[in-house]
Design a protein around this nucleic acid. Structure first.
Lengths: 260, 260
DNA sequence: CGAGTTATTGACTCCCCTCAAATGATGTGG
DNA sequence: CCACATCATTTGAGGGGAGTCAATAACTCG
């Protein structure tokens, strides 16, 4: 909504006077700590400025609705901090979480007029919102950006297929093992210091969310995690974190070998 | 393989002498009966000629492997007739079919060096194969084609999310009802004559495939279909076809209402 | 510290799986 | 055209893994 005059430190010479706010806005993507990950990595400096110009940054507390199933698909988002859950529901309230979008992931793409899924923040989330016309302009103006988005959606599809294998054919034990390893990888990718990330998994979501993601009940999730803890495969850590004590064993379990 | 002399009435005037083979090749997409559906619909006549030039047509019998899990991802395919199954497997043989690609659907997209899934024909299949460099050239040369592919992948992702809801949260009864309705829609889209397609579902795949698609066993699939038949919700027809007698009731079941 | 939320653990149930056998469909050669 | 082999599907009987219901324990945050 705010249409501010945009002339930045990197802009070609010109005498325009501009507000600090506008300055900050155009800088946002250039200094963003995930500009080299995610879709944004397809952009050069000029492109990053265009991204900043096309988007608006949002800071949202845990449990905030980002998009609602069935509502008009007006915007596209890029997560730059925190974790978002995507889900679909049945009329009686049964819910399936189809994925978690961590920092660097996008969400909100739709060819239909309305969203076919809901999205909600898990923890404190920072994201960039692109309204649809602006996203389309970016796609047209920056072929590398469009190519990068195509690749990102393709990756998401491969992920979805992997998750279908999990939901349709894995046991509870295998599901939870897979989940913990995935969370370890996610933490590894988003953690600032690699050292402390070693064998650590970030699990900011509740048991309800985990159950709805794995197609289980909270009781089964809880029992399975307890069993892993008793078997010394994992150990609890502070701040919704779990330390993986035996990656190899969990890998075996996750891929269906019956090795304990 | 059979190259029959093909010089058609639609060929542009011009004195160039060319082989019948080349003629046929360049015409293939221009006369394809699904050129207005699928990705190809993004192309004008010149584009269709480019498509034909970039691809090779394959005719495959049932049970033929198209791509193998873990093999180099060298090609991209567009199904123009028949049905293809896509799947992922666990080391011990458990399998999840992640989708069926009917006429007009694509398959084989991958950002990785290797395919993360397998694909096999269900019945007699005709498809167009694009080698990777040629696909990439098409994407660069025809922006509308790339945009269309992005939309197609986005749709596939939405489908995958719907299937995750099914796999994770629906009962056997709900799964089978959903499947039958989906097959009805698929038949509706690909049938030549709309009249006979009314309430008809094409089910060319075996019980094993259906079970692996729905995350069930063949016995449960069979029992559930038998129960629907006894309840007069469906009736068997010739040629792997099923007539839906009560779409409304099946819709209720598929969406989780307990209405019989 | 207490009220509300979230997680764990236990006892029991049930839906779907497993194992097994019969029936039906498809194709092949005599 | 039929006998026979093979494969796919159906149906039945019984068992088990995850769900349901219920109570307790452990957080979280005024």
């Amino acid at each position: 909504m705010t249409s501010s005059p945009q002339t930045s430190a990197f802009a070609p010479a010109g005498g325009a006077v501009h507000t600090p706010k506008a300055d900050m806005d155009v800088m946002r993507c250039l200094v963003c700590d995930i500009r080299n990950k995610s879709l944004c990595s397809s952009m050069d400096e000029e492109g990053l400025a265009a991204l900043a110009h096309s988007s608006r940054q949002l800071l949202l507390p845990p449990g905030t609705t980002i998009v609602e199933e069935g509502e008009p698909a007006l915007a596209f988002f890029n997560v730059t901090r925190g974790t978002v859950k995507l889900f679909k529901s049945l009329p009686d309230g049964r819910r399936q979480i189809t994925g978690f979008a961590d920092a660097g992931q996008f969400l909100g793409l739709s060819t239909a007029q309305t969203y076919s899924f809901g999205a909600e923040t898990v923890d404190n989330v920072r994201l960039c919102r692109f309204l649809r016309p602006q996203l389309e302009a970016l796609l047209s103006d920056y072929p590398t950006f469009e190519r990068r988005l195509l690749a990102a959606v393709t990756d998401k599809l491969a992920e979805a297929q992997e998750q279908m294998l999990l939901l349709g054919r894995k046991t509870a034990r295998e599901k939870v093992a897979t989940f913990l390893l995935d969370r370890m990888r996610a933490f590894h990718q988003t953690a600032n210091r690699r050292q402390e990330a070693e064998n650590m998994a970030s699990v900011p979501m509740t048991r309800v969310d985990i159950a709805d993601y794995l197609g289980l009940t909270i009781e089964t999730v809880s029992r399975t995690i307890s069993a892993f803890r008793r078997s010394m495969l994992i150990a609890s850590a502070e701040n919704h974190r779990i330390r993986i004590l035996s990656v190899a064993t969990l890998l075996n379990i996750a891929s269906g070998q019956k090795a304990d």
